[in-house]
Design a binder for these strands. Sequence first.
RNA 1: UCCGCAGUAGCUCAAUGGUAGAGCAUCCGGCUGUUAACCGGAAUGUUGUAGGUUCGAGUCCUACCUGCGGAGCCA
Length: 469
Amino acid sequence: MPHVSVADALKGTPGPDAEVTVKGWVRTRRDSKGGFSFVAVNDGSSFDSVQVVAAKELPNYAGQVMHLTAGCSVVCTGKLVRSQGKGQAFEIQASAVEVVGTVDDPDTYPISPKQHSFEYLREVAHLRPRTNTFGAVARVRHTLANAVHRFFHENGFLWVHTPIITTSDAEGAGQMFKVSTLDAANPPRTPSGTVDYAKDFFGKPASLTVSGQLDVETYCMALSKVYTFGPTFRAENSNTPRHLAEFWMIEPEVAFADLAADADLAEAFLKSIFKTLLNERPEDMKFFADRIDKGCIARLEAFVDSSFERVTYTDAIAILEKAAAGGKKFEFPVSWGMDLQTEHERYLTEEHVGRPVVVMNYPKDIKAFYMRLNDDEKTVAAMDVLAPGIGEIIGGSQREDRLDVLDRRIVEMDMDPAAYWWYRDLRRYGSVPHAGFGLGFERTIMYATGMQNVRDVIPFPRTPGHAEF
RNA sequence: UCCGCAGUAGCUCAAUGGUAGAGCAUCCGGCUGUUAACCGGAAUGUUGUAGGUUCGAGUCCUACCUGCGGAGCCA
């Protein structure tokens, strides 16, 4: 019998009255003393489960089918027919229900068919993909990841696998996790008593990457349009619904591009992946709209349809100052030179513009060393994309391509030029203007689904004190 | 890391300082082409941990642990 996915069975793809086999896990069982049971079987291929009608004539009906509980794994074979009941177009009239795996102790099976709190489900993260919400999150996460690759592929970008382990100095992006094979209790020492990293695996201190940007710039300076999409690590003691110690980041980099082109790319990119999501996961998105965040579909549709406003940082400050003068209350006072707080970002995108806005040309003192210094010598060619409902969703910049200016900035920021010798080489050998941006993948999923906690949009969240599973 | 709130049955939650309960899940029975079905019954507890106050503590106090929210850091 051909094995079909639950998704295909529900759509009736194999055709009416086809003999099919579905394989999956029981969600619920409802009995009829008319002599049959309804078994909802889900295999993750779709949000909905398929209804398997199992009659008492089955040899294992009383012995096994009647004892099926949530979580049991089954292989069900039978005829795919139009359903007599409401709620599904097709169902399976079973000729055989093979119980592959039973549930050890149904009394304590952690995933009962009733609603659970997300906090509780994090404690059983190995079983939570069996719930409606986490199945939907997994499918949306996959679809968005796939849409990211498709967008870049179709636009001539190459996916570059930048290293996870790095010996580069931190570029100011945060605390790094150390990677070492030294005996922590008794490390080799130099004569002066410090740990002798020359004897470590890599011969020098190594860490997990906080960003692939510097590495991907090297490939950009040869292959023109490139991107990274992989895990990144921050050893910050952040305990918020928006931070993870291990998260996935998307970082494109384009040669012969300036800040305006970078903003255009960010706009086209976000619209593309959200459009793909709306097109390809309507059932899951309907679930999020029904149960998680009522406005999530309308928000994405508006996002896809609206053009992004562009405004300079200096103009943004003027707008905020005017708003404050007009009676708008901000917790943090507005002045040129400060970094925009969440409340400011939200005012700009939600109240002032009412759609996504790109803020460009920030003061150099609040941005990273590699961002291109503008002619005014006060600002750098940096941009943030702000979106209604979330604030900053993308941060990017045109990179400093002039060696002398880059060196000046490195020294200004009290960093060691020698440590960036290969990054500087890019400016010595055929340097070109180039630009890129970074996007936190989990935050993108949160924005799309309305899920409120970043720990619930990644399969196994890593946060301070937590690396279970 | 700082501030605040919370921790009671497998899950979600009740319980004036005075006998620890309900719904769901589970098990048994009934009923029905059922739809997170419905009806009846049963079983289910070191009230986060350790101290303290009290005749008596789930309830009040202290410390710790854990979770959540906010802030900072940021993606």
